[in-house]
């Protein structure tokens, strides 16, 4: 039986992010990995006002590529890697078959969902500024008690 304390998990995840969070960089900074660049483009597009350290972002990206669900989605991320600019180039996207475009949107929605569930996005106060930290990978099969939205008071 796996027994995890959600609070302990969130605290340890936040502490780790703070250590790694020195030298903040904008999410738009280019990275070598083309798959990572697609994830970066999705996050930048959907969350234009936030910042995240490169270390945290690399951890999130690495975990996403490790744990993302479905071979189809994995294939699409690779496709995006082979076609640089797919994440942001509307002309390039429009040249793809409609079914592939729909699947790309599904992948992007999934990235957005996992990002929101993996970070302190919803836990920040207004005075905390635009920086978001990675807590734990937001898939309960990977991090069983990491729902950042749930409340357990009466």
């Amino acid at each position: 039986m796996i027994r995890l304390s959600r609070r302990a998990l969130l605290i340890s995840g936040a502490a780790g992010a703070a250590v790694a969070g020195t030298g903040l960089a904008g999410i738009g900074v280019a990275r070598a990995s083309t798959a990572e660049s697609m994830i970066r483009a999705v996050i930048r597009d959907r969350f234009p006002d936030i910042r995240m350290s490169d270390e945290d972002f690399s951890r999130f990206t690495a975990d996403y590529l490790t744990y993302m669900k479905g071979e189809g989605r994995r294939w699409l991320v690779r496709l995006a890697g082979w076609m640089p600019g797919l994440g942001t180039n509307d002309t390039l996207r429009a040249s793809l078959p409609a079914a592939v475009q729909r699947r790309l949107v599904a992948v992007e929605d999934d990235i957005m969902h996992v990002f929101l569930m993996s970070t302190d996005f919803f836990l920040r106060r207004p005075e905390d500024g635009p920086t978001v930290s990675y807590l734990a990978y937001g898939d309960p099969l990977v991090s069983p008690c990491s729902n950042p939205l749930a409340s357990f008071d009466a």
Partner: peptide, 16 residues
């Protein structure tokens, strides 16, 4: 059993 932590994968409940 521990208390539920709202992970919403009840069909597998990884924390029992």
């Amino acid at each position: 059993r521990p208390s539920c932590c709202a992970n919403s994968i009840c069909h597998l409940c990884p924390i029992s």
